[in-house]
């Protein structure tokens, strides 16, 4: 566990160079230009709000960063080095974790099994990957420790997540990204399906993520959340970047008009 957190201690220094930047990103789906030369960057210990109406290109952008799609042109620069990301696995390897809007959770598995899906702690190493034995107790213990660390409380750790509430599920999904994120966490509308109290829990979790030194990209429609949490906001409209500013209570109206283009 210590090893997981150790990488985060050298963190959150204000003038740090961006850990992730995207330069001149374009993407076309048939005749639709989904992204037209987008530049964004995010540093450690910073929350970047990514705003835009439906179809503005937010989801396409983050799906390209997290390896689901690929940019037609443009580059991804991680810690100063140009990086090619061809699959979700490669994105993870590069230290980018994504929590998808539609909750990529396994309903039939427990929280710990969800946490470690696809990267279970297992051994011995000389066996082929598929035949390595799971170290379930260790994964359970690490999950419990991590959830405690993030102040997420679940009624039962050995119940499958299908039995849990929307907020608990979202908390698990967000917490899962923190286990393995070494550089960037991308959250696609983490509070979309949640009630007030549950949203609060998740937003606190997002703040914790930042305080632990992650670079966070937060996609949301909720202006209050952006103003509260985001250090900077980038607004997309019709695949173009139409603005970038520090969101405050005073420029909320300006943000909204950028989003709708009025």
């Amino acid at each position: 566990m210590n090893a997981v957190f150790a990488s985060r201690t050298a963190q959150a220094d204000e003038a740090s160079p961006p850990v992730l930047s995207v330069r001149g990103a374009s993407k076309r789906f048939g005749s639709v230009l989904a992204l037209a030369g987008i530049d964004i960057s995010v540093s450690r210990g910073e929350i970047l709000g990514l705003l835009g109406d439906n179809g503005a290109g937010k989801s396409t952008l983050i799906k390209c960063i997290s390896g689901v799609h690929r940019f037609d042109s443009g580059s991804i620069i991680i810690d100063g080095a140009i990086t090619t990301i061809r699959s979700p696995g490669e994105a993870r390897f590069a230290g980018i974790e994504t929590v998808y809007q539609d909750l990529a959770l396994f309903d039939n598995l427990t929280p710990a099994q969800n946490f470690f899906a696809g990267r279970e702690i297992s051994g011995p190493q000389w066996l082929p990957r598929g035949l390595r034995f799971l170290k379930q107790r260790r994964m359970d213990a690490e999950t419990e420790a991590l959830l405690g660390n993030l102040k997420v409380t679940l009624p039962k750790l050995d119940a499958v997540v299908a039995m849990m509430s929307g907020g608990q599920r979202q908390a698990i999904a967000v917490a899962r990204s923190t286990v393995f994120a070494r550089k960037v966490v991308i959250l696609d509308e983490p509070t979309a399906a949640l009630g007030l109290r549950e949203s609060r829990q998740v937003l606190d979790l997002v703040a914790t993520l930042r305080d632990q030194g992650n670079a966070v990209i937060l996609i949301t429609h909720n202006m209050e959340h952006v103003i509260e949490l985001a250090d900077r906001a980038v607004v997309l409209r019709q695949g173009r970047k139409v603005g970038e500013l520090v969101p405050t209570k005073d420029n909320k109206q300006e943000l909204v008009s950028m989003i709708v283009g009025a």
């Binding site: 689901v68 979700p88 396994f106 598995l109 899906a117 598929g130 035949l131 799971l134």
Partner: peptide
């Protein structure tokens, strides 16, 4: 025992539970 104790077994449950999530998890 393959199903319950190995990574391949866990992959089976993950893919059966949520194919898309399994793909995104790098399985």
């Amino acid at each position: 025992s393959v199903l319950i104790t190995t990574r391949f077994g866990r992959d089976i449950y993950a893919v059966g539970g949520n194919l898309e999530a399994a793909r995104l998890a790098g399985i």
